[in-house]
Nucleic acid binder design. Sequence first.
DNA 1: AACGGTCGTTCGTCAAACCGAACGAGCGGA
DNA 2: TCCGCTCGTTCGGTTTGACGAACGACCGTT
Lengths: 188, 188
Amino acid sequence: MAPSESSGAPLAAIAASLQRERRRVGLSLAEVARRAGIAKSTLSQLESGTGNPSVETLWALSVTLDVPFAQLVEPPRPRVQVIKAGEGPTFTAERSDYVATLLASCPPGARRDVYLVSSQPGTVRASDPHSPGLIEHVVLSTGRALVGITDEPVELAPGDYVSYPGDLPHIFRALEPDTTAVLLSEHQ
Amino acid sequence: MAPSESSGAPLAAIAASLQRERRRVGLSLAEVARRAGIAKSTLSQLESGTGNPSVETLWALSVTLDVPFAQLVEPPRPRVQVIKAGEGPTFTAERSDYVATLLASCPPGARRDVYLVSSQPGTVRASDPHSPGLIEHVVLSTGRALVGITDEPVELAPGDYVSYPGDLPHIFRALEPDTTAVLLSEHQ
DNA sequence: AACGGTCGTTCGTCAAACCGAACGAGCGGA
DNA sequence: TCCGCTCGTTCGGTTTGACGAACGACCGTT
């Protein structure tokens, strides 16, 4: 997914984030600038939305404020969301008793999808490689399953966890009826 | 968590990412520069690691290449990880039958932790607010539980999903023995 | 009030990011 | 071979982000 909107750079969002995070850690503008090794005038302009910082400058600030770099650029996002079992958009593989329910799709700023996977034995859910850098995490809830890279899958029991690069061929193969798992697809 | 290392800005990583993503979509340097509205000389220098782009410039490129902004800055990261049920580092709440197993901690570039939660009824796991912007996702695996914001929790059955802001007081209260859930803690 | 301290903003200077044009290299067709 | 085209790089000129000093505002203290 592309960055939020196709609009211009979120300079205003950066300005707000910088000030919010600085307030959060309770430091003065001058102190943050000093620790980050930048002029406080620069920081002042950035927080006022006047300016277009270089990556180096923003990076220094993200380190100083102990905030993920991306958080300074991609603004916040809120709220409560409930999806009852059986509801929500589902994706069913053809010729395979495999149902994936999208629980939380990738919003701007976050880079992960959360699925609830329900599968039956007898068939194999083989996935072609997804986009480079994608990582999948699987936590088995019920049943048993062979999960992971096609060449070296791992057998999971309830509570077991596996993660693997999603840009390699991989499978999900239920070994017992009503096998369910939580799948976290992380877009790097 | 802070950006990867406390070292200098990842200008080399940006250079590599830009070239890799451009190659991926199969466009020439000149064409990408034209679409992004920047001079191709600028892009040439960025891809060669010579330069310290402004946020505006990088943003335009991330939009053009249809790549999340953060991906241009935070480099890749790999591999397979297995944690069998009962293994892995656990956190136990005092006075509460509540065990959280850390499945995937927050690496540089990603901003989420994955836990397997196992809990027994009779006690309430109440969490004080975490850092601002944190979002928690819960998928119930077995049993039943009251989960969510303390003021308005949601009752979950196996397969149910809920997400809520982690910076508000929230609870996890098992309603049946051996209640388990997958908890995704997302650091915005 | 006068003082020392820190707060955040503003101003002039300088380095550098960005631009546009020109360049050489590589390739296919006449 | 000589065009015509596109590739990516290199070279001055212009714009602008970053710097440091100076500024007014706002406390406590004397």
